[in-house]
Every structure is written in C-alpha cells, then in structure tokens.
Design a protein around this nucleic acid. Structure first.
Lengths: 229, 229
DNA sequence: TTGCAATGTTACATTTCCGTTACAGCGGGC
DNA sequence: GCCCGCTGTAACGGAAATGTAACATTGCAA
C-alpha cells in the first residue's frame, strides 16, 4: 500500500476530500498541520508522496518544499503543492521551490488523483544509497564523501550530486538540459550555462594531480563522464 | 531555431504574450485559430512544441491533443494546454487526453517559459538513440561517436549528422537539396555547394587508411553512401 | 583533343560554442 | 548582527565549427 502525507492547515473540506480521493486511489493518508512536524513524519513514515498546502502556520508550504528538496534523503520524494492563489508569480515560486506539481483550489477529487498519478508516473526513483566506484573514484552517498586514492575530495553539494549522477550513468553523453533535469530537478528554471560553471567546479575538485580525465566535453551536445580513464 | 505552434482562438492578449515569451526563449512562433488547420501546420512545419487552447471553434483542444497523441508521427510532439481557471474537470480531461502539461490562465511569461523548458527537457531522452552499424563502421548516436575497427573517428557535428543520415539511408542517391533538408533542416537555406565541402570533410574523417570507399559521387545527381565496400 | 560544367580542395572570415573568472545575492551558522 | 560558503549570472577570450569563395581538378561530350 502506497502512502502519502497531507500537510494542510485546519481546513476540513480539503482534508476530507483528499482523504476520500487518496483512499479511492489506494493510498494511505497521514496528515499534519504543522510543517516542522511534517519533516519528522516524512523521515518516519517514508511516504510515496507529499501534499503541501501553500499557507501553513509555522512555515510556508514553499519553504517546506524547499527543505524537502534540499535534503538529500528526501529529494526523491514527489511534492505536490495546494494553492488557492491564482497569482502566477506565486505559482512559479512554488515550482521553483522544487515542488513537482501544484493544484489550484478548488479542485475535484478526480483532478487530484490524475495529478498524483501523473507525478508518480513521471517520477523516476533515485538510485539507492549504495556506494559508487569508478576507476580511482569512490563516492559514498550516505556520508557525502568522495575519495580518490585515499584522498578526500572537497566539493559543494551541487558538484556532489552532479558527480553522483555521472558515476551512476557513466559513458553516456548528457545535454545541459538533461543534467538540469536530473541533478537540479524537473521544475527548476535556471540558465543552461550554469551547468558549465558547475562542470568547471567539479573538474577542479576532481583534478587532484595532473589533468582531470573523467569529464569530457562533447561539443554541441553536452558532457560525458568516463568510467575508465 | 526551435519553433512552436500556438493554437488559440482570437484572444489578442494571450497571443501577444505567448509570442513575446516564446521569442525571448528562442522560439519561432506560428499561430492558427483552427484545429484542423493546426494539424496541417504540424505536419508541415514540424514544430518542437504545440500550445493548444482548450476552447477552439471547430474542435476542442482536448480533441486536438488526443489526435496528435494517437498519430504515430506526432506522438512524440510535446503538447501544452491552455485553460481558463475553475474548470478543474476539464483540466483533468486535458491531462488524460495526452497533453504533457497545462497552464491555467492567466499566466505570466515567466511561468510559460518555465513550463515549456520543463516539458522539452522531459522529452529529450526520447530521441532516437539506436546504434547504427554498416560494414566496418559503427555509429553511436548517444555518445556522438563513430568507430571503425576500434579506431575512434574524429569529425565535426555536421559531419556526424551527415554520416548518421547516410548510414540510416544507405545505397541510395541523394541530391544536395535533399541532404540540406535532411541534415541541415527544412527551412534553412545555405548554398548547395556547402554540401560538397562537408562531404569532403566527412570523406577525410572516414579515410583512415587507404581510400574511402563509402561515399560515392553521382555526377549531376548527388551522393550515395554504400553500406558494403 | 578541347571546352565546359560539375566536383574536389583549400583558405579564410564569421559565427557559435565553451572555459574561465569575477561578482552579487542568498541562506546558514555563529 | 556579521561572516562565510554556495549558487547562478554575466562577461570576456579563445577555440572549434561553419559557410562562402576562390582556385584546381575531373569527367563528359562534341
């Protein structure tokens, strides 16, 4: 049985409707009205999906979504945002915060189910937390640590996620768009050239002694990580 | 230059805004108010994306999306639906009809661009990525790499696309015009003699040892790629 | 063979793409 | 509050790729 967590302020109609719809779709529903509490629930229950109301007492829904997406252990958790505001700027901020989709209130149970299914369908589950080894490199997702020949490499979070993606998908060219999708998130709208900069930073971090031979540029297409030097 | 087709009834604000946003994002915009006409435009212009208004005179946007998704040649074409607020049931039908996303009016240029980019990013992996092998040559579209007897051949992007087309259409004569259409694009006009130059460059790249026997000149007609030496 | 048109080859200016650096904004930790 | 690390954007310079033109060569026909 799949499960979802509903984070919503005290709004009886919404709560009842979501419960009705979700249970019809085969989801177990847990709910809380407090964002801090929601973080604990997520860690505890490990749900398949989180529904977050835009307005929350202690923390905004945007902030909650952002926190979930900034945490490595919850990044792969789909988040749908509930919002009453038709003001488009807020909706963009909702998407940019990392939410995978949003629904504008009022909405029907049918729409909710359709969106849940759509999000789960297009969501690709992240790889598990197994350590990854390529040639001389060893990456430990749990401890956020990369070592090359017993030397611990220093890099930022984005560079780490980028390297993690590369090491789990080696020897294949990825466009900047695809990398943004996979490493930054599907609803993040940043300039493609940002990838270049982080590639540079990652190369610098990997370049312990001598030239980095892992990341290759494929002109006009993107970048490729080579598993064997 | 990427292009999109906007299918919308006579609504000047929407049309102007989409045009503004799309051009800023580097899209050429073609528009029509008629769904039947849109199907023709799609076949003709082969756009990268279609924006469909939910309300259309001759055919509903839902119906148009369904038709596009039921046709093999247009199935991989991303469709975004534009819909007025408050019709959540319709929005569900929009998603179920096969549209890849929808935007609720009113929306900002920023949101539109974000959604367009997200949808295109999602679609990129559906590119044809089957390896092609002819005689001694092996072409890998994913890695943009060509090998001949374990030797990696070095060539530019245009030469690569040219060779890719040849290897997927061997043993047939193509005129310079046809090659420009297939390899450069339908609405790009460059001098026909440019083909000669790139043929030359490709021949040079393929000419590892001895004379290249793959590309033959058919005087007065064009070039032919021979699958077997 | 000669002449002409088609094609091969090379050179070069322009454009596009990428590496690199600098910097401002933002959030977290103290 | 302040400092500091991380992030995304902009700007600049250089390298690769492209398209055009000029010249050389080939092939066909008269």
């Amino acid at each position: 049985m799949r499960s979802l967590i509903l984070v919503v302020e005290d709004e009886a109609p919404i709560r009842e409707m979501v419960r009705f719809a979700a249970e019809r779709a085969g989801f177990a529903v847990a709910e809380t009205g407090d964002a801090e509490r929601a973080l604990v629930e997520v860690a505890d229950r490990r749900p398949d999906l989180v529904l977050v109301d835009w307005m929350l007492p202690s923390m905004s829904g945007v902030e909650l979504a952002r926190r979930l997406k900034n945490n490595d252990s919850t990044r792969s958790l789909p988040v749908i945002m509930l919002t009453a505001r038709g003001e488009e700027d807020d909706r963009v901020r909702g998407l940019e915060s990392g939410a995978d989709d949003y629904i504008t209130k009022p909405f029907s149970p049918r729409e909710l189910i359709a969106r849940i299914k759509a999000v789960l369908r297009r969501y690709r589950p992240h790889d598990d937390d197994a350590a990854v080894v390529c040639d001389d490199l060893s990456l430990d997702p749990v401890n956020h640590r990369v070592t090359a020949k017993d030397a611990v490499l220093d890099m930022g979070p984005t560079e780490f996620r980028l390297l993690h993606f590369f090491m789990t998908h080696p020897d294949r060219v990825y466009s900047r768009d695809q990398l943004l999708d996979q490493v930054w998130g599907q609803n993040v709208y940043v300039d493609e050239r940002t990838v270049d900069v982080h590639i540079r930073r990652l190369r610098k971090a990997l370049d312990v002694h001598g030239h980095d031979r892992y990341i290759q540029t494929v002109r006009g297409s993107g970048y490729r990580f080579s598993s064997k030097g």
